[in-house]
């Protein structure tokens, strides 16, 4: 048994928000792949789990008329991966999702949950940061939208307010021919949390490159946009690597030392840049 708690499975959002907001020490259950591990360990002992998987609308996975994408809070990583539009339009996001955990866990783990867990190593975070994504939120005082860039407050902490539920992730329409990529360093090829991860998105028309990285600071970090027009891929890679290292503040943990993270982070950045820019100048 994972503890003594009540379980509710609301079917509409208002009910979910009410249950979650009214109950002190309630937790949202979506995929459960992080929450249930916390419950088993005793580190977290909520009195109520609000299962949002059957809430109306939270299973949506919609492409808007201009190509924007909305991913409901009950959408699993595998559902995202099996969604053709995601793989065509946002390959970096697909690479990030595919790098997470195992096939079985991706049938449970949700896109939104990966963000809400607020791990510094969350693989979707950099991928969504470079796409300018935002989190749709419902709460007792209404709905709002939090850019992913403002979503993380620290290790395992988000800017969600008390009683608020993340209901979806919104990815704006991609710029024309947007390229994106994701790379992750881990201890083995099998499932592992990231030692470091890097995502990039390049809009060829403007030459603007966005880079984000994770597992090397208390939160995932989005770098300031880098203008690549007229620069070689090597030069962009070097500049991006320097900017990344300047923003990184890695720690040593059981997966890797801070020194190793500092050593591989620029490697990943250069490789992502090379993948996006190819060999030559843009």
């Amino acid at each position: 048994m994972l503890g003594r708690f009540d379980y509710e499975r609301p079917t509409n959002l208002a009910e979910a928000v009410r249950l979650f907001a009214e109950t002190p020490s309630a937790a949202i259950l979506a995929g459960g792949t992080d929450l249930l591990v916390e419950l088993r360990s005793g580190r977290h002992a909520p009195r109520l789990l609000v299962d949002v998987k059957r809430v109306d609308g939270l299973r949506r996975l919609d492409v808007g008329p201009r190509g924007d994408l909305t991913i409901g809070a009950a959408v699993s990583l595998n559902e995202l991966l099996e969604h053709a539009a995601t793989r065509w339009s946002f390959p970096g996001l697909a690479q990030a999702a595919a790098s997470i955990a195992t096939y079985q866990l991706r049938n449970r783990a949700t896109v939104t949950g990966n963000l809400c867990n607020a791990s510094p190593a969350a693989d979707l975070a950099p991928a969504l940061l470079v796409l300018g994504a935002a989190v749709g939120v419902a709460g007792p005082r209404g709905a709002r939208v939090i850019p992913v860039a403002e979503f993380f407050a620290g290790v395992k902490r988000t800017t969600l307010r008390r009683g608020e539920i993340a209901t979806e992730v919104r990815i704006p329409a991609p710029e024309p021919e947007l390229r994106s990529a994701f790379l992750k360093q881990q201890r083995l090829r099998g499932h592992d949390l990231a030692v470091a991860n890097v995502a990039g998105a390049l809009a060829p028309s403007t030459g603007t490159l966005r880079l984000a990285f994770g597992s090397c600071a208390p939160t995932p970090i989005l770098l300031a946009p880098i203008e690549t027009k007229g620069m070689s891929a090597v030069a962009v890679g070097a500049a991006a690597a320097a900017a990344t290292l300047a923003a990184a503040s890695p720690i040593s943990d059981v997966r890797a030392s801070a020194e190793y993270r500092r050593a591989v982070l620029p490697v990943l950045v250069r490789r992502v840049v090379a993948e996006l820019l190819g060999g030559g100048a843009t």
């Binding site: 201890r187 083995l188 090829r189 099998g190 499932h191 592992d192 949390l193 059981v254 997966r255």
Partner: peptide, 29 residues
């Protein structure tokens, strides 16, 4: 050869006593 080993802190506490932190080869390895 390439993955496994116990890690202890300076108080002799095992730092990798589970499959998240202690990795063995998978079918991808």
């Amino acid at each position: 050869a390439v993955l496994e080993g116990f890690r202890f802190d300076d108080k002799g506490r095992l730092l990798n006593p589970n499959f998240v932190d202690y990795k063995i080869p998978t079918a991808k390895d």
